[in-house]
Each structure stands twice: as structure tokens, then as C-alpha cells.
Measured scan of single mutants.
Amino acid sequence: TTYKLIANGKTLKGETTTEAVDAETAERVFKEYAKKNGVDGEWTYDDATKTFTVTE
């Protein structure tokens, strides 16, 4: 399944996707990606669109 991340960070803005077996796995991947890019904010997830959003 393809999951999408929308990053609304102070230093990183944009979108990326990952293939994962479930939302929990995708969330781990995206949180690691955000951490590597210095983004720390509020996370939301929309199951209907398989989209995570992080906003600083």
C-alpha cells in the first residue's frame, strides 16, 4: 500500500511517499524521515486517503 506524507515544517515543506504493509509501518518510516530532516511537529493521519501530515 502506498502512504503519503505531507510535511509542513519550518525547514522542510513538501510531499513524499512510501510503500508499507500497514499504516503503523508507514508512520515509523515517516517519523524517521522527519527526524532526519529536523521536522518535529503535530502529526495527523487520514485513513481514507492514506495520508500523514506533520505540521510545525
Rank of each mutant, 00 (worst) to 15 (best):
E32G: 05
T16Y: 15
A34S: 04
G9P: 04
G9M: 12
A48V: 12
D40G: 07
D22R: 03
E15Q: 11
G14H: 14
K50N: 07
G14D: 08
F52Q: 00
G38E: 05
K50C: 06
F52G: 00
T17R: 08
V39G: 03
G41F: 03
K31D: 02
G14M: 15
K36V: 12
K50A: 05
K36G: 06
D47M: 09
E15P: 07
E24T: 10
E56L: 08
G41K: 01
R28T: 07
L5R: 00
K10H: 12
Y45F: 07
D22M: 03
T53N: 04
K35I: 11
R28Q: 10
D47F: 07
A23T: 08
D40K: 12
E42N: 10
N37W: 15
K31N: 04
N8Q: 11
K13H: 11
A26R: 00
T18I: 15
G9Y: 07
L12A: 06
V21L: 12
K50Y: 08
K35P: 01
A20F: 05
D46V: 05
T53F: 10
K50G: 04
Y45P: 00
E56F: 09
T44S: 13
K50I: 02
A23W: 15
Y33Q: 03
K4Q: 05
T2M: 13
T1A: 12
E56V: 10
T55P: 01
A20N: 03
D40W: 14
G38H: 08
V54M: 06
T1H: 13
K13S: 11
K4F: 14
A23D: 05
Y33M: 06
L5T: 01
T53L: 06
E24Y: 11
V39Q: 05
Y3K: 01
V39I: 15
V21Q: 12
K4L: 08
E42K: 11
E24M: 11
E32F: 06
K10E: 09
T18E: 04
T25H: 13
N37Y: 14
D40Q: 13
G9A: 13
W43P: 00
T16I: 15
V29A: 08
K4I: 13
A34G: 03
T1Q: 12
T53V: 07
E19V: 15
K35C: 11
K10F: 12
N37L: 14
A26T: 01
T51H: 02
I6E: 04
T1Y: 14
T17D: 05
T25F: 07
K35A: 13
F30P: 00
F30R: 00
T44N: 08
E27L: 15
T44Q: 09
E27C: 14
T18N: 03
Y3V: 01
A23E: 07
T1P: 06
T16Q: 09
E42T: 14
E42I: 15
N37G: 05
V54F: 13
A7K: 04
K13Q: 13
L5K: 01
E56R: 05
K36N: 12
E42F: 14
K31G: 03
I6M: 07
E32D: 10
G14W: 15
K13A: 09
G9E: 03
T17H: 10
D22N: 12
E15L: 13
E42Q: 13
V39W: 15
E15F: 11
R28G: 06
W43G: 00
K31M: 08
T44W: 08
T17E: 09
G38N: 09
K13D: 06
I6W: 05
G41M: 03
T25P: 02
D46H: 06
G9N: 06
T18K: 04
T55N: 09
N8G: 05
V29L: 12
V39E: 03
E15C: 15
T16P: 04
G14C: 15
D22H: 04
E27V: 05
T1M: 11
I6H: 05
A48L: 12
T18R: 05
I6K: 07
T18S: 04
T49E: 05
A48F: 11
L5E: 01
Y45E: 00
Y45R: 02
T51W: 02
A48P: 07
Y33T: 04
K50T: 03
Y33N: 02
T16H: 14
E15D: 06
D40R: 12
A20L: 03
K50V: 03
K35F: 11
W43R: 00
N37S: 07
A23M: 13
E27W: 15
Y33H: 04
K36R: 13
V54S: 01
T11G: 11
E19I: 15
N8F: 14
T49L: 07
E56S: 08
E24I: 12
E27M: 14
D40L: 12
A20S: 06
T16V: 15
Y45K: 01
F30N: 00
W43E: 00
E24A: 14
A7Y: 15
N37K: 10
A7F: 15
